[in-house]
Amino acid sequence: MSVAFRRESDEEHLEPKFELPIPLGPNLVTARGLELLETKVAELEAALPALTDEVERKAHQRDLRYWRTRLATAELKEARADGVVGFGCRVDLVVNGKPRTIELIGHDEADPAVGKLAFTAPLCRAVMGAEVGDVLDFGGKVGAVELVGIGVAENLR
């Protein structure tokens, strides 16, 4: 048989496993976000000794490396309390004529389905530094966002 049709093992044809991507920029977290990171690392560390399957163990170790890195780089940040939108704020908006409330929080605690957005999300970047009454352009539309209220995010109260 020709060498061209022979393979040494099944391992050479498996997809490579990559590290989980770390979001760029600072790792700002609320107090709740820091607690979530600590809990996640503790859970993963506790489960590791019981894993015997090599593939499952490697995937678990990859996850643990990600969460340890996120915990090690976490920067606890207090909410702005000066009436200007910033990290840790809850913001009441009217977006394209529809009311919406968002919280500007860290990446690992974000849940867009309930309005908890990472501070680097496009809508968060658009309202950062704004004040109540400001009308802002967003998504290519002039005056698409109006700020109607600013408070402290639920995570920081």
Rank of each mutant, 00 (worst) to 15 (best):
E78P: 10
G83E: 12
K58W: 00
V91P: 14
Y66D: 00
L93V: 08
T101I: 15
E35M: 10
G33R: 09
V91G: 13
V95K: 05
D111A: 15
G83N: 15
E56V: 08
K98D: 09
F119L: 10
A74T: 03
G33M: 09
I102C: 12
G115W: 04
A79H: 07
V114E: 06
A81T: 15
L51Y: 01
E54D: 14
G86T: 06
T69R: 00
A118I: 00
E54W: 08
E78G: 15
E75G: 04
Y66K: 08
P112M: 14
E43T: 03
L34E: 10
G115N: 04
A113T: 11
I102F: 12
A59R: 09
N96I: 04
P112Q: 14
P49N: 03
K98M: 13
L104F: 00
D82E: 09
R80T: 13
V84H: 09
R68N: 10
A110V: 06
T52R: 03
A118L: 01
T69A: 10
A46R: 11
E56R: 15
H107Q: 04
T30L: 05
R32A: 09
D82Q: 11
N96W: 01
G86A: 14
T101S: 11
L64E: 06
A42E: 14
G88H: 08
R62S: 04
L34G: 11
V55D: 03
L76T: 04
E78A: 15
L64R: 02
T30M: 02
